[in-house]
Write a protein that binds this DNA or RNA. Structure first.
Lengths: 208, 208
DNA sequence: TGTGTAAGTAAGTGACTACTTGCATTTACG
DNA sequence: CGTAAATGCAAGTAGTCACTTACTTACACA
């Protein structure tokens, strides 16, 4: 492994555990198995190093894509929700830290908002298509519906560790439950009552 | 104002801005208009002071109550949602900081989870009553529905500052919109437009 | 073999941190 | 008035922090 990448990974890990102020250059250097001075020679300052580590991290974040045209909404949205909640859970430490630091370090906002912004765009686009195709019998605002699904998933990913008893059990199908309840609000037919093997195949193809 | 209370208020304010590590005893003392030494004489240590400040804060947190038996669900839930989102918005800085610090200082978990836990209890209780009284035509799990509404409100309160464009506009009626969409999911009659075609459609769907 | 680059070692700088000590001052109250 | 508690002031302690300087070592490559 490259020294530079090792340092970036170590910085991200230490930041996730201790936040900015707790990420001492010594701790990062130790975690990277590198001399402390190397950090400064490579990145100039602690601030620059952390910024670079965050940039590196958000760039590598990828989650499931939604098809342009809905075919099997319950299936497609559930897949998306599960991939989104999994991503948030894996990154929950670093997300919590970033949210706490953002008011003191506004330059981190760009990295913090990148993933949710992309997710919101994708989801809004999908829900709008759902509506346009007449697959939803109820009236709704795509942005509100998207904010609800994402908000539920976000809160679950952030809060379940601290208070497991206020979230639906088991953890593994929580995303599915949120998705179902949202589709219920939109008046979208429950896919499991229909035979949809062809469509399932196509949706897999699209989200690959 | 009492010296002790001034110190507690100052500690909460500084913590909200700078987090635990950034809350230096000097900063707190300055904010309270008090000599730094007084903090240590009154509270023993910085950690004890911050803990006390958090305890003081969560104890004074109050928001709208839900009636034991639902009468006008849309109205009652909207009131509750609005009071809840207002509380979260006012405390958003301190909540973000606390969430970031909790993994390093697990003793703060107690204070952090107190408000949402109470809110979740109240809301679940209300939604269960709604179901028991047959005011909801759709099947749903109260805990999942409660988690969705609270999650939407929480995410809005935490995220709108950073990315106003991904949340429904205007800010002032976002809580109302989340509430409406949830009630739509539960199949609860909309108080302001009774006996609509959508109601008919849904009952057809149910009887089929 | 010579040279440039990245890395390590050792030592230190100045600023900040929580917290302490000793002593003077103010304030509350019987 | 007298006393005790609360507070302030000045100084200091031991530690940590980001970051620097000066010098040495390892290695790639021509």
């Amino acid at each position: 492994m490259n020294h530079r990448d090792a340092i970036l990974a170590a910085a991200a890990g230490v930041f996730a555990k201790h936040g900015f102020r707790g990420s001492t250059t010594r701790r990062i250097a130790d975690a990277a198995g590198v001399n402390e001075i190397t950090l400064f020679r490579q990145f100039g300052s602690k601030q620059a190093l952390i910024n670079e580590a965050m940039r590196h991290l958000t760039q590598s974040a990828v989650f499931a894509l939604l098809p342009d045209t809905p075919v099997d909404p319950e299936r497609e949205l559930t897949d998306w929700s599960e991939s989104f909640i999994q991503h948030l859970r894996l990154q929950s430490s670093i997300i919590r830290k970033t949210m706490g630091e953002i008011e003191e370090r506004p330059d981190m906002c760009e990295f913090a908002t990148d993933v949710p912004r992309r997710a919101s765009n994708d989801l809004c686009h999908y829900l709008t298509a759902l509506k346009r195709q007449g697959m939803a019998t109820e009236e709704f605002e795509p942005k509100t519906a998207a904010a609800m699904l994402m908000g539920s998933i976000f809160a679950d990913a952030m809060g379940r560790d601290m208070m497991p008893d206020v979230f639906p059990q088991p953890e593994t199908i929580a995303a599915h439950k949120y998705t179902q309840l949202l589709l219920q609000a939109l008046g979208v037919e429950n896919g499991s009552r229909k035979a949809t093997s062809k469509q399932t195949k196509r949706s897999k193809q699209l989200s690959a």
